[in-house]
Design a binder for these strands. Sequence first.
DNA 1: GGGCCTCAAGTTTTT
DNA 2: CTTGAGGCCC
Length: 793
Amino acid sequence: MSNIYDTLNPMQQEAVFTTEGPVLVLAGAGSGKTRALTHRIAYLIEEKGVAPWNILAITFTNKAAGEMRERVDRLVEFGADAIWVSTFHSMCVRILRRDAEYLGYDRNFTIYDADDQKVLMRQVMKKLDLDPKMYKEKTLLGVISTQKNELVTPEEFYTMASGDYRRMRMADAYQEYQAQLRKNNAFDFDDLIMKTVELLQHNAEVRGRYQDRFQYIMVDEYQDTNTAQFRLVSLLAGRYKNLCVVGDDDQSIYKFRGANIGNILNFEQIYPEAKVIKLEQNYRSTQNILDVANAVIANNEGRKDKKLWTANEKGEAVRYAQYDTAYDEAGAIVRAIRKANEDGLALKDCAVLYRTNAQSRLLEEKCIQYNIPYRLVGGVNFYQRKEIKDMLAYLKTIYSGQDDLAVQRIINIPKRGIGATSISKVAGYAADYDMSFFEALDCAGDVPGLGKASQKINSFVRLIHMYRSKLEFKCTVSELIRDVLETSGYEQELLKEDELEAQSRRENLEELINKAVHYENTAEESTLGGFLEEVALVADIDSMDDSEDRLTLMTLHGAKGLEFAKVYLAGLEDGLFPGSAAVNSEDPDEMEEERRLFYVGVTRAKKELTLTCARLRMVNGENRYSRRSRFLDEIPPQMVEDGKKRSGDGAGYGRSGYEGGSSYGGGYSGGYHSGYSSGGYGGGTHGRDRYQADIFELESRHDRGQVSPGYKAPQYGGFGKLPDSGVKLGKDFSVTKESQLDYQVGDRVRHMKFGLGTVTEIKEQKRDFEVAVEFDNYGLKRMYASFAKLKKV
DNA sequence: GGGCCTCAAGTTTTT
DNA sequence: CTTGAGGCCC
């Protein structure tokens, strides 16, 4: 009876059997590294008698973690669920949930996502009086993130910035930002790692506990780790040193978000006793495809020497085609895929990969035109959608009310007549008395100057309390969501919006409920807190549904780790791929990273690979001519077949009249756009095509990433074409112009915010009085009487 | 408070 | 060309 390890090749076996001490597995694309990793875990448990709870396997995405757990489950007899298979972030959350008190944080902290960070940063900038023209919040957040990835504290950042005024101000922002996070009992994603490192570094007891627990540690995609993650892993492995890292330096493509390729390149320097194992046999692609990959990546200087080989057949030739316009390119690609599909290849086995998300547009248009169902990966994350964030803010508020940002987000959603002024009053009061925003709301009666708003605030607080008590009566998370939707007035408010928009939002909320139900069915103990946590760490891509047969469109970054029988790399033009930043950069590393990205793209293909580019492309609204990508020139000419010389494949189509006149015959100056909108492509189906294009146009704003052309056709009652009559259902907004003002020029008046002032001018306009007031402390202001609510003194 | 318009900006992205 | 954010207006 053979055992499960017999199916592995000798190098894979070595990776599996070398269990003690540091191990570096250099795993080329498609070399079966996940297989090696899962078998290694099985081997540790079954053959070496290691307790499952002494094993830790770390990945970057939930998807990878889930897949690995599933595969381990199948290999290991029992106890597999005691293995920690987790992402860096969820592992840190688990540690912090238990031990955050040592850092002075409460254990039920919340996690801030990119949106929360932005809101917080805006507050920080206001407080520090940072000119938004000089310092953009995006830049500041970027700088802070970089520091955290490098484990630089605000104090250290000050020291490093010494003298440089701009850097000092950034340090101010970093420090204040941290103070605010701390106050809100929140961590951002980078904090999760950095604070865990801090915890382990400063607390020997805690460190010892985890070091003892994790006797065998494995890290996947090691080339993507940043400095903080590297330190975290070193700390955890500090006692037993049984650390096995798996990665491919040639697939390091995340430098821009902090990944430090040095972690993998210098592993042997850091652990001199490390065993290095190379997995170079590729099981995925044909030899022809690998030849191209090897030829290009060989041009990189900073890499470990290795060369992929395969026992697979030579396969089809790799093809190349240059088109006149990006429009032609997209059309030819989609038609070729349609042809392949007609010949029996499933759409889900095809992918078009590109460098930037903007390139997806043209491809989408063509897919719609040719009725090819597609799946667009990338774009707006499900959990970043407004309605989802709103609902989650409700849940967070019901859960703990400690998260000021969440409470402030929903206090006036749906509209409750609690405006910015009231909010800032309450926030000021909360700051004065050192309480959370929600606590301050709870005693709104004591907050000075709230007036009528305090009534409204009270009913909001009561609403939240009501949900809380329902939760105690064993109402599930999904029931709670439904309840909030129906009783908070959120659903009704949705109905007032544009029909399509409302529908899309409701679908997304239904999807959230589905996720809640799924959570209830899978979690051991389902709690609101648990659900929020799961959701906070889940990215959209994890829920990518690959059951439907659709063509995949995505960026090269998104494609890492995936494989398709037939792959198109589109837009291979200098300035686009490699991007202009890399072309113009002094730093040669940038070009190397682009080249690695190219390598990643090429190695996604199993059977067929086509490389395409266009002479003319619309970029940022202007036509741009480009020469073909330098990476194409790095491929020996005999390795590719120029598609233009053949007829019958991708490039040939363009000439055979399929395009219907707009692209080839008529030159390109604007021809394709007008060609598209005037429906000039012959055939009897274009009416339908245009109809779908309209749906796409309208839906795409809210539904990027989930577009489903040709799949659900919503009742098309001519919506988008109706002139907006201005009759917004139920909405009656009119300025109530007072017939007369109780003050006149020269009078002293009081304003809610600006205090005392003197009226200098009153102008009567169509619907309102415009009043100018010279305030004692704020200078001259002009305002409308109906909003200013000025009181004569 | 909120709709509408102008203007600037515009790789890659997970958690 | 497209999108988002801020300014303006009623």
